[in-house]
Design a protein around this nucleic acid. Structure first.
Length: 516
RNA sequence: GUCCCCAUCAUCUAGCGGCCUAGGAUACCGGGUUUUCAUCCCGGCGGCAGGGGUUCAAAUCCCCUUGGGGACGCCA
């Protein structure tokens, strides 16, 4: 297998990063290389147990030396030829700005980004805006915003329309060399009528396309503008893209691209065609499936790291692990662990992941994200928010986040910490025996000091005992009166977090309505 | 229609010939913990699309069938 050496070296480097030193016999076992080359790898200074993270990725120069050796097997030669030893990895994400960035596109962007970051390579963002009819600046902004939200930072940025000169030059070159002809005003690329074009795909393996099935195709319209297939190749070549990672809806276009790379005399990049993300009806994701815009998920209260985690797990996996932060994703990501079959986008697991990441998140950051959402509910004002002790807010966020799937849930839960009328989730009535009990509890709490869960519990129980009552008699109504909810964090913790003033007031109000 | 890709629980997946009576996660259903809810813990439900080979041995390799997806533009 051509990927064996590749796999072996990647594994070796991963293990090196984890400070696990693979012995040459293990490497030999994995990739079947002769012990001579395995020794060569392991004796290289870069491949040492003491190696730090962030070292240049592979001991390629050494392996290249072995290329001279006639005993090296064909498959190793193949790998060496295509991996272009030591070359900096460059990948690109190339969306067309004809609408929002949907989650499928976001996943493609993420895989490119992870691949680049994992390999200390370069991540290029290239806007394919050659379709003047459908491209809009708003779309570009939305795409950039989506990527910023997900934290997919790019190292280089291009707009395809800025590269017309380069396209012209390349096209003219093909024309001059007779590889392109003009007909009806358009420029056609001549496809060989015989032979096969093979696409070397790092995920799918080699895919063969008979050339006679490919027809000559237009690279330049009669109005002088260029066709996607042409510009994508010229751009990838000029930008020295080493790996084209994209959706497998492009697989059938790839032989055209390979032919163009060859015609232009440029190096053909490696390809990785990712399986598509499907909607619940198993068809390719589209607007019709609703909620496919990446930013929708931000607005619905998902954490970007949860989204990234979820998207990464759609097609990629690492053993049984489920929850990944950004850093471990970068560290662990590998094309070898990408799945070949398409995945359905279903957000139940995203909900759970979001909850996991909310539990992991810094409380102050959480509050910063939740604040605008609370204000959006139009009951709590910015002044009210700022007037509440940050410690209370933190406690609230801490108490409620275990019970929330999204930041929206958290926002609505946190409303009860503010002096606004509660909207009880269930109608409740305080009865004649409960009212005086609640009043005495309220009176006791008015004097509780400090207002901590422990002291609150003590005083509440004492007040109830004095009236020959138990907590059970008033727990539910009190909870409803103070929090508006039937369920929630521990009663005393809830009280402490709501604060003395509001608790006493809400208890008295509830009791009062009956006593009158 | 032609070409291409894919195929393990409802969903995301592990599995690269023996460790598989197929493992994990979500969802769902029980139980425990909790004054409640959630978290957490324990348990349950549930799958190798079908048929042929190859092999001592197949979820795993090969072929066929079926199913799903995608591509067949002077769109990207």
């Amino acid at each position: 297998m051509s990927t064996s050496l590749h796999y072996c070296l990647e594994l070796a480097v991963q293990n090196q990063a984890r400070k696990i030193h693979m012995r040459s016999s293990q490497i030999q076992h994995i990739c079947g290389l002769s012990s001579f080359y395995c020794e060569l790898i392991t004796s290289h200074p870069r491949y040492q147990p003491s190696g730090e993270r962030g070292n240049p990725p592979l001991p390629w120069p050494l392996v290249r030396t072995g290329f001279q050796d006639p005993v090296l097997s064909n498959r190793v030669q193949y790998v060496l030829k295509h991996d272009r030893g030591g070359m900096m990895i460059r990948v690109r994400f190339a969306p067309s700005p004809t609408g929002y960035l949907h989650v499928g596109g976001a996943r493609t962007a993420l895989f490119n980004w992870l691949f680049a970051r994992h390999n200390h390579g370069t991540f290029i963002l290239r806007i394919e805006d050659t379709d003047k009819e459908r491209s809009t600046d708003e779309s570009i902004e939305e795409i950039l915003e989506s990527m910023r939200w997900l934290g997919l930072d790019w190292d280089e940025y291009y707009r395809q329309t800025d590269r017309t000169d380069a396209h012209l030059l390349a096209a003219q070159d093909l024309m001059d060399r007779g590889l392109v002809y003009e007909s009806d005003g358009a420029w056609w690329f001549r496809v060989p009528t015989e032979g096969n074009t093979i696409v070397h795909d790092d995920l799918l393996g080699d895919v063969t396309f008979p050339n006679d099935l490919l027809k000559d195709f237009v690279i330049r319209r009669s109005d002088g503008s260029f066709i996607y297939h042409f510009v994508v190749v010229v751009d990838d070549a000029d930008m020295e893209v080493t790996h084209v990672i994209r959706g497998d809806d492009h697989l059938n276009n790839t032989p055209k691209h390979v032919l163009l790379f060859e015609a232009l005399g440029r190096t053909v990049p490696r390809f990785v065609h990712l399986p598509m993300i499907l909607g619940s009806d198993r068809t390719r994701l589209s607007k019709r499936h609703g909620d496919t815009a990446t930013l929708e998920y931000r607005d619905r209260g998902f954490l970007p790291e949860a989204m990234v985690n979820f998207l990464a797990r759609l097609g990629w996996s690492h053993g049984d692990a489920e929850v990944f932060d950004r850093a471990s994703l970068v560290e662990l990501f590998s094309i070898d662990e990408v799945n070949k079959s398409g995945a359905i986008f279903e957000d139940t697991k995203l909900m759970w992941l979001n909850q996991q990441h909310m539990k992991l998140a810094d409380l102050d950051r959480l509050l910063g994200l939740v604040r605008p959402m609370v204000l959006e509910l139009n009951r709590v004002t910015a002044q009210m928010w700022d007037a509440v002790d940050p410690g209370h807010l933190r406690t609230g966020a801490h108490l409620f986040r275990d019970r929330c799937k999204t930041l929206r849930d958290l926002a609505s839960a946190m409303e009860l910490l503010f002096p606004v009328p509660l909207i009880p989730e269930d109608e409740f009535r305080v009865n004649a025996t409960q009212a005086p009990l609640m009043m005495s509890v309220a009176n006791a709490l008015a004097l509780t000091k400090p207002f901590t869960p422990e002291d609150i519990e003590q005083d509440v129980r004492a007040a109830l005992e004095a009236n020959q009552a138990t907590l059970k008699d008033v727990a539910l109504v009190s909870r409803l009166a103070v929090t508006g909810r039937k369920a929630g964090p521990g009663l005393f913790e809830s009280f402490a977090c709501v604060g003395r003033e509001l608790v006493v007031e809400r208890l008295r109000d509830a009791a009062q309505s009956v006593l009158e």
